[in-house]
């Protein structure tokens, strides 16, 4: 057990280190902006005094390394700085001392919304995909398997917005069963919220299910070809028991891996889908901020996405270590 603990701690440390380096990469990338933030905020026609004042305000006159650690320590405390968009707005109306909306304030509710969307998607996609994947593996080369192969390949190949608009066309426009706009607000009832989240969740489900199903199928086929499955069949064990008792315990590691990898994939998919459905999540905020070059928000969103991605990959790693009998029961 000790060695497993050691490996897991190593992976955790590696994950933290990666996240740390990623934060440096993000910070450096943003610092490659021409000129500096102050000019970016105020635009070309700003007076030098205004620029200087903003610089001081944002601490831009300090050394980049100092600023990096300020930013990092802030991020660790949950303080991600202030949004430029609001600062810009404030200076525009001439109210410099006005209210600033902090990035954290902006992100928090949207983060919750995105988690809700991802949660709903996972709840539909994971059981569905794993079941279909196992079925396709059991009845491989049958008509069912071939149909599943072609449709998942098509679904993977299609851009998310294509699937999204096809779903809108059929489920919102032609047969108005679900709303095509996901205008979610605070204090909404769970049922209504679920209904408004349904279309984006279904779109994501289509993409993720296809990936997950193909990978599950491959993992299970690989497993069913192993000699110990043949051995179990040659021992005259009932087919159902062969699957449950012999295949499943060994399939757990690859399936967990597949699920975690695809949840990580969701992170990218969520951006486009949120834009299509105007879903007030972190992905939409990210794209909006990219367009108006709201650097602190872009930086923060990037960090959150990367953190989630690393975390999920790490989870996959650790769970597959835990489900490996060779590691759990060392010699």
């Amino acid at each position: 057990m000790n060695s497993v603990l050691k490996i897991i701690l190593q992976r955790l440390a590696l994950g933290l280190l990666t996240l740390f380096i990623v934060s440096i990469v993000i910070f450096t990338a943003v610092n490659m902006l021409p000129g500096d933030f102050a000019e970016a905020i105020l635009g070309q026609g700003a007076t030098p005094e205004a620029v200087a004042s903003i610089r001081r305000d944002l601490g831009l006159d300090q050394h980049p390394i100092v600023r990096y650690f300020d930013w990092l320590s802030g991020a660790l405390r949950g303080d991600l700085g202030n949004s430029f968009a609001q600062a810009n707005f404030a200076s525009f109306v001439g109210d410099d001392s006005g209210v600033r909306v902090s990035v954290a304030q902006q992100i928090a509710p949207r983060f919750a919304n995105t988690m809700f969307l991802a949660g709903v998607t996972a709840a539909i996609a994971v059981p569905f995909a794993v079941m279909l994947g196992i079925l396709a593996a059991l009845y491989r080369n049958s008509v069912f398997d071939k149909v599943a192969n072609i449709s998942t390949l098509t679904s993977i190949s299609s851009p998310e917005f294509f699937l999204a608009y096809v779903l809108i066309l059929f489920l919102a426009v032609l047969n108005p069963v679900l709303p095509s706009l996901s205008n979610i607000y605070e204090g909404m009832g769970f049922g209504e919220r679920l209904q408004k989240t349904m279309l984006p969740a279904l779109t994501l489900t289509l993409v993720v299910t296809a990936h997950m199903m193909r990978m599950t199928r491959a993992a299970i086929i690989n497993l069913l070809a192993s000699p110990y499955i043949e051995m179990a069949r040659l021992k005259g064990i009932k087919p159902m028991r062969v699957i449950i008792k012999h295949a499943l315990p060994n399939a757990l590691a690859p399936i967990i891996n597949v699920v975690a990898l695809n949840l990580a994939y969701l992170i990218t998919g969520v951006v486009v889908v949120e834009v299509v459905f105007v879903y007030p999540g972190i992905g939409q905020l990210f794209v909006d901020s990219v367009k108006i070059r709201d650097i602190p928000v872009v930086q923060a969103c990037c960090l959150i996405f990367a953190a989630a991605y690393i975390l999920l990959n790490l989870t996959a790693d650790i769970l597959s270590i835990l489900s490996n009998p060779r590691l759990r029961h060392p010699k």
Partner: peptide, 23 residues
Amino acid sequence: VDVLMAIPSLIFALLLMTIASAW
């Protein structure tokens, strides 16, 4: 490469595009 791959590619592309658009 490990570090670069730890950032989801679309997200990374969007981040860099922000900077590129300023350039």
